[in-house]
Amino acid sequence: MDKPWNNRAWFLVIPVFVLVAFSAIIPLMTVVNYSVQDIFGPGQAFWVGTEWFEKVLHDERLHDALVRQILFSLAVLAIEIPLGILVALSMPADKGWRTSLVLVLLALPLLIPWNVVGTIWQIFGRADIGLGGAAIRALGIDYNYTGNPRDAWLTVLVMDVWHWTSLVALLCYAGLRAIPPAYYQAAKIDGASRWAVFRHIELPKMRGVLIIAVLLRFMDSFMIYTEPFVLTGGGPGNATTFLSQYLTRMAVGQFDLGVAAAFSLIYFLIVLLFSYVFYTFITTVGTGDRS
């Protein structure tokens, strides 16, 4: 018993290790396997090294999709975060039926399956029979999301805002409710304006939930697939073809498994990198740890 360590402790880690292996590591290694080989069929695989990666990195259409994707995610964050905060701030604070009603209404879009969201907006936005599309046309605006890239973009954006702003609002609402009333009372006594209350009490206290909201909305919008697929199918042309849709087209449509695998890995690294940068930025800003 005078051994300073005991290797049997490793047994305790095994269950988690097995779980993670099956849920993450093995599938990921399969993708890595595909990305460095050209596979024609069972037993017919050829080593190609970094060829797929080079091909992906020089793909013009992929670059366009990446730019579109970044623009889309930034637009989503720029609209949904402030809008979510605004909605949360104007929600009732008591425990009455009004609060319950607002919470249920806000949660509704989150409960709808994503392909159904796409279908709803696909019909809603149609210029001939859709309520939204026809109404806009009736105002004299030449709106057509299937033909006009700008309209398609706007429709996809509005759809995402409709679908996900609730999430940001609910998170912010939870953050706001966690602020003890003494803070508001003290601010009142200190003669603080409404803006000062928001800037110096509410915003700092919502930091934690805002970090989560930004990360969730970023990752989710960066991987968006179902809704634009149903709504526009990536069109018109390639106007609303985002990364994951391009990837699916390659993997399933053209059966370019090698290229698609290489692309997947790059995609994964991009999401990881962006999330890391966002996270470190948001956790250090406003804490005074600037050095």
Binding site: I189, S193, H200
Partner: peptide, 25 residues
Amino acid sequence: AQVFQFPVIYDTMSVYDNLAFPLRN
């Protein structure tokens, strides 16, 4: 002026700004 059970401070401000806050307002 009222002092509460739990200290109420403005997290993002320095001590100086905290003390100056009611006057600046």
